[in-house]
Amino acid sequence: MKIRVGVIGCLGRMGKKILNELAINTKIEIACAVTRLGNKHVGLDIGPIIGYGSDLGIKVTSSVNDAFELSDVVIDFTTKECMLDCLKAAIKFKKPLVSGTTGIEGIKLKEYATEAPILWSANMSVGVNVLLKLVRNAAELLGNEYDVEIWEMHHNLKRDSPSGTAIELGKVIADASKMDFQLNQYLYNGSNIREKRRIGFAVSRGGGVIGDHSVMFVNSDERIELNHKAIDRAAFVKGAIQAAIWLYENKRETPGLYSMQDMI
């Protein structure tokens, strides 16, 4: 039997790509496609809207509750406010939720995850999650003798800064290096110098860049760099779908907070 998947944010950049990939996945069927209330496409078949070429038999809805009621697992790529609605619905219907929504500071995911299986990652790319493991290993091996700088670049429409992935990289390094993680270290000016045992952040925005991340370990003698560049959003799409399948097949009866690190 196929896994029924609902998609929240179905008309966004990620939502459309996820639906197109789901439509050709033999293990999955699309159960529901949700967009914001008042969108002109509500009530229309999702197929032509996402450029699939024919009807898929799924009409766009604005009800998050419908998605959780009709689906085995739900994928969310939206906003902080919409993600909160998804978390509440996941608890209400006891259904697994996969979310790649970023800019969610203040949401206590662990509390929601006590009542439903939730997989959240700042970046759904398998490659980025391999990078996270490599960065952790590097931080453990290099100790505290190296300054750590994280640089990221995204398209000019991205709202949160630094990116969720950059923040996650910083947290992994801080944990491995036994240092306090502080986000407000990415601006330097003439009145201060770089502090030791702090992680520096630099942010660039421009054009249609999907996502570039670089982690640098630097001392007076050498610099070690670990990089990831997203070539196509398909990497995030395929990772999110893998995560949905994994969460449903392995954790649907086990509430908890999971990540791509658990899956890979």
Rank of each mutant, 00 (worst) to 15 (best):
S125R: 11
V126K: 14
G127K: 12
G127W: 03
V128K: 02
V130K: 07
L131D: 07
L132V: 04
L132C: 09
L132Y: 14
K133T: 11
K133P: 00
K133G: 04
L134S: 07
L134A: 01
V135S: 07
V135H: 11
R136E: 14
R136P: 10
R136K: 12
A138V: 00
E140Y: 11
L141K: 12
G143T: 12
E145Q: 11
Y146N: 13
D147Q: 13
E149N: 13
E149V: 12
I150V: 14
I150T: 05
W151L: 15
W151T: 10
N156D: 15
N156M: 14
R159P: 08
D160P: 00
S161T: 07
P162I: 09
G164A: 08
A166E: 08
A166K: 09
E168P: 00
L169C: 05
L169W: 08
L169I: 14
K171W: 04
I173D: 00
A174K: 01
A174W: 05
A174H: 03
A174C: 02
D175T: 15
D175R: 10
D175N: 14
D175K: 15
S177Q: 15
D180H: 00
D180L: 08
F181L: 02
F181S: 04
F181Q: 02
Q182V: 09
N184S: 10
N184R: 07
N184K: 08
Q185F: 11
Y186S: 02
L187P: 01
Y188L: 11
Y188N: 04
Y188M: 07
G190T: 07
G190S: 13
I193R: 13
E195W: 03
K196A: 06
R197T: 04
R198F: 02
R198I: 00
I199D: 04
G200S: 13
A202N: 11
V203S: 10
V203W: 10
S204R: 14
S204V: 09
G206F: 01
G207P: 03
